[in-house]
Design a protein around this nucleic acid. Structure first.
Lengths: 150, 150
DNA sequence: TATTGTTATACTCTATAACTATA
DNA sequence: TATAGTTATAGAGTATAACAATA
């Protein structure tokens, strides 16, 4: 009498589920990479660098959807960890080319391992076809949402 | 030679996908409810109140996973919008019982409509069985992640 | 003395704007 | 004059800790 039953409630929407799950899972992931002295945004930068090379830090900022000044501080931290090197572009000495070091690749691998472990914990109750379907569908959602992961 | 192909890369993990999707979708949702003078955290509080009654603001804080002081400011704002009322519990006058007003239910419905619209945009490329499967799987993930939505 | 809600304060994150150097 | 990166500053969001009222 006092509850709307026919239409889906807010907690049943994809938007609500993705938002809350993303926040919780993100926090949990943050806890796991804390020992590496990294935060999710650093991992985002490492990942972007691991996927291809970018002409400039400003390109990176656009790709990550953050302000260029934030790329500076993220890169500062990663540089202090020995994870990346800044090299001036001889063609245009205003630009800095960021490249992952061996240590950077190690850190990226360690983060991937943590994420994979968490994945396993989250999907332990799913069978293999369900896992694959979820993976594929989230991939297509990401593309649709404008997250060019590839 | 320089890329690990066998194991899944970080962007292919559930953790990464959920984290980035959650952030993007959350931001987009925030943009849509801005005209209602609400932010996602307010919607979280409205939703919790819409689902059941809670003995105290501190219960609410625990449920939402935020500090009790934050519940105060969220409730202040919602009260100023006429969305909820604070009533002192006569049994224990230290406690305030928060209840949604008609306006609060209206706002909750408006947020649900926005979320549903966004859902449609995100899943327009999926067929109905895929949508249902995604919904069900995310629901089970939420439960597993400790988000008692029900 | 313990607990609820509130207020005061401080900290984290991130963006905007000013600045430096190169072009 | 315009652009890349950096630095300085400011704002939002949230937590911690002190406080007042009630138990």
């Amino acid at each position: 009498m006092n509850e709307v039953k026919g239409s889906a409630g807010l907690p049943d929407t994809l938007v609500f589920r993705l938002g809350t799950l993303g926040a919780v899972v993100g926090d949990r992931f943050a806890g796991r990479i804390e020992r590496l002295d990294l935060k999710p945004k650093h991992v985002g930068l490492l990942t972007a660098l691991g996927q291809g090379s970018f002409a400039s830090q400003q390109d990176l900022a656009g790709r990550l959807g953050v302000a260029p000044s934030l790329v500076v501080s993220l890169a500062d931290h990663l540089e202090s960890l020995g994870a990346l090197r800044r090299v001036r572009d001889p063609q245009d000495r205003r630009r800095q080319v960021l490249t992952l070091t061996d240590r950077g690749h190690e850190l990226l691998a360690a983060c991937t391992a943590e994420a994979t472990t968490l994945d396993g914990e989250l999907t332990a109750h799913l069978d293999e076809p369900e896992r694959r379907a979820l993976h594929a569908t989230l991939g297509s959602l990401a593309t649709r949402a404008g997250l060019s992961t590839a």
